[in-house]
């Protein structure tokens, strides 16, 4: 039953989006990662196509969130974490996990949205403006424009335009998550990381966020971690399936969900495993 559903979704979407010659926004090359002595990622290879949605799927504990958090060096906030290999960010070709790369400069270019909405305890406006202020942009006119653009981009503008100065916690969970997306969008990131962005949301809020992700993909490169295969099928162009820290299979979403080349992947996407 699931098989049918997924391929129907893929067909419905691929009908509207003809394949074009891909350009790369980033490329993971032989990436290894350790939490202390524990190796969480093993020889990962993964291309991230420009202005496409790439989804990482796999059972919990497979390393998909760990991989995602390598893209903005989130692991550097904690002790004893170690990277090896490369994540090349194009077009400049810098190695994100390079020892000499300043993680803070990477995070200025790569945005992130977390599993649980984590707005700052400030007003809606200040939440969206946060990334700009961090970049030293404090001019009211510029901020006003960018905040409106980001909130519009996150499909939240109409709901909050009259209450921009209210606290962010006055919003519902789904609105808070879209606010966090707006916050990540405002500084115009080159790559947007989404770490199971709908796992804490109800179905209606989830649908809204999914719609939003599809729209965003027209202009921005997205890497999303999800445990929900329907979601991966609905919104992603490419899918990487991970298991125990390894990238088992990477392909177009249409192939992964319809006829994956590995039995392990088939077992997972058909729900017989995981």
């Amino acid at each position: 039953m699931k098989d049918l559903d997924l391929s129907a979704l893929i067909e419905a979407r691929d009908g509207q989006k003809p394949e074009t010659e891909p350009t790369l926004r980033a490329n993971v090359d032989q990436l290894n990662f350790w939490y202390g002595d524990f190796q969480a990622l093993k020889n990962i290879n993964l291309p991230i196509h420009d202005k496409k949605v790439t989804a990482l799927i796999g059972a919990s504990g497979c390393g998909k969130s760990t991989l995602l958090r390598c893209f903005n060096r989130m692991h550097d906030l904690y002790h004893n974490n170690r990277y090896e290999g490369a994540i090349t960010l194009y077009p400049e070709g810098d190695n994100i996990v390079g020892a000499k790369t300043d993680p803070m400069l990477i995070r200025l270019r790569v945005g992130m949205v977390f599993q649980k909405p984590n707005p700052f305890p400030k007003s809606i406006y200040e939440n969206v403006a946060a990334g700009l202020r961090i970049r030293g942009i404090n001019k009211r006119t510029i901020l006003d424009d960018k905040v409106e653009a980001a909130l519009t981009g996150a499909a939240l503008w109409d709901e909050v335009k009259d209450r921009l100065n209210e606290g962010a916690y006055s919003l519902s969970g789904g609105q808070q998550q879209r606010l966090c997306i707006a916050r990540a969008l405002a500084p115009e990131p080159e790559l947007l990381l989404l770490d199971e962005p709908t796992s804490a949301l109800d179905p209606i809020a989830t649908a809204k966020v999914e719609d939003l992700i599809e729209k965003l993909a027209d202009n921005i490169t997205i890497l999303i971690v999800t445990h929900n295969m329907q979601q991966a099928a609905r919104i992603s162009d490419h899918v990487g399936y991970m298991h125990l820290g390894e990238m088992v299979e990477f392909d177009l979403a249409s192939r992964i969900f319809v006829k994956p080349s590995k039995e392990q992947t088939r077992a997972y996407v058909t729900g017989r495993f995981g």
């Binding site: 903005n72 803070m104 400069l105 995070r107 305890p121 961090i134 990540a184």
Partner: peptide, 25 residues
């Protein structure tokens, strides 16, 4: 919550910005 720090660092903030803007308030 650690999520507050992560949110700030993910936006590209450095330690002092995170401290002054979010931790101390």
């Amino acid at each position: 919550p650690q999520s507050m720090r992560e949110g700030s660092y993910a936006l590209g903030a450095d330690q002092w910005q995170t401290t002054v803007r979010y931790i101390l308030p």
